[in-house]
């Protein structure tokens, strides 16, 4: 039996009739065609499906769409604001923090959440934070570098805004 869900995704109110068993990631990919959020495993380890739900990084393959009723959801497609890339997106490119690109949206969303919580992480803290995101291409070296660089940029921006 279908149920109605509604939520805000990337600033837009959206809704649909869905099966209760629909995962949030399926809702995003199949109903909203926001395919930047990806599915890389079925046990919840890879983190390619990471999005922000009410401001926190969540694996959208481990959440029913129904659980996100009324939530504020941000996906990789909504991270850039007013045509300006998020500093994390810029840093990933500048530091070659991506190769095949498949894990990248999840990595960026997860890393963006880290910096909300900890604006000045150490390399060790970055590596620990990434426990929930797998990458098979980069060896993590440049991902870590990119996140540390983005943190520096964002601290600079925060200071400039003061």
């Amino acid at each position: 039996m279908a149920i109605a869900v509604s939520m805000t995704v990337n600033g837009k109110a959206v809704g649909a009739e869905i099966e209760p068993r629909a995962l949030l990631v399926q809702f995003l990919r199949e109903h909203l065609r926001l395919t930047g959020t990806r599915v890389g495993c079925d046990t919840g380890q890879c983190g390619a499906c990471t999005v922000h739900v009410n401001g926190r990084a969540v694996k959208s393959c481990l959440v029913l769409a129904a659980q996100a009723q009324g939530a504020q959801v941000v996906t990789i497609e909504g991270l850039a604001r007013d045509g300006e890339l998020h500093p994390m997106q810029v840093a990933f490119s500048e530091h070659h923090g991506l190769q095949c690109g498949f894990c990248t949206p999840g990595m960026i969303m997860s890393a963006a959440d880290l910096l909300q919580r900890n604006p000045d992480p150490t390399e060790h803290e970055v590596r620990e934070w990434l426990e929930g995101n797998l990458c098979r291409c980069t060896g993590y070296h440049n991902i870590v570098k990119a996140i540390l660089a983005a943190a520096q940029t964002m601290r600079g921006m925060a200071k400039a805004a003061e």
Binding site: K59, S110, G132
Partner: peptide
Amino acid sequence: IGDPQVRNC
């Protein structure tokens, strides 16, 4: 426990 995303849920 788990990883940051898991701890958030």
